[in-house]
Amino acid sequence: MRHRWTSGRVIFAGLNIVFLLLIASTMIIPLWNAVAVSLSSNFGSMASGILMWPRHFSFSGYRTIWTVLDLWQPFENSVIVSVIGTLLHVLLCAMAGYALAQPELPGRRVMITLILISMMIPFESIMIPFYVTIQELGLLNTLVALILTGLVSGFSILLMRNFFQSIPQEIMESARMDGAGHFRIFFRMCLPLSTAGLATVALIEFVGRWNNLLATVLLISDSSKETLQVALNGMVNQGSSTSSGDLVTNNVKMAGIIIAIVPLVFVYPFAQKYFVKGIFLGGNKE
């Protein structure tokens, strides 16, 4: 050990661990409680008391929210918007990042400045003219509008650009000598060499799109085009009854929340590594 273990240090180490476990428990207990409530029966979930284990175990919460309240439809919309949106986002931002990494590109400065300025404009502050533009394009109430929202971002472009700039110039130079064009170099060399960058952008974008609320709130009024977050917000947080007047019991609410978390669980093992990488490479979250 680096230092001697005095009794003071042992006590400190113990208290330190207790402190951390307390912090961690504020994250675990809410989730544990949600799972327990979601697996309780309608009646069991509404009873008061500390509920850390399903009361009258039942899947009725999941059944109700999925088929009676039709959460499958918004879930499907969210999958479509998140998956297609993320793939396009990664491709377009990588292409832009590649182009902006080429030192010989005329007008590079101007374009980078345009991108940097756009990063200082929060989406929230232009939500009204954004809505008006989508209306002018005739795309209100379409999933296309949701895919378009945030199709490229300065953050992702600059992150990819940093990645491409770290690829040794000699490799690309020799490919160019062999007569390879930009597209060939981009798809055959740069993309395979930048999988970590692509993964970072894809993960951040997927989570952002899956969790996005404002775009749907603004652009979608037709309930068949709603995304999961908006539908869930209506069922879980805004009053306790649906439009049809049924009471939404706690097990149904928590089942909805667990369903919204599930896709993130698949992403989670990679998230920590790449999210922090994103912060350091991009130097900016948005």
């Binding site: 961690a24 809410p30 509404m46 879980v236 928590m254 929340i257 978390i261 998230a271």
Partner: peptide
């Protein structure tokens, strides 16, 4: 383990986080 656990809420949407806490803080139940 502590790192992995305390990082979780950052991934969740505000609908999920809001829903969890509104439920946890409900006056009844």
């Amino acid at each position: 383990s502590v790192q992995m656990v305390i990082y979780l809420p950052h991934l969740f949407s505000w609908v999920v986080v809001g829903g969890l806490w509104i439920q946890l803080l409900a006056p009844a139940g």
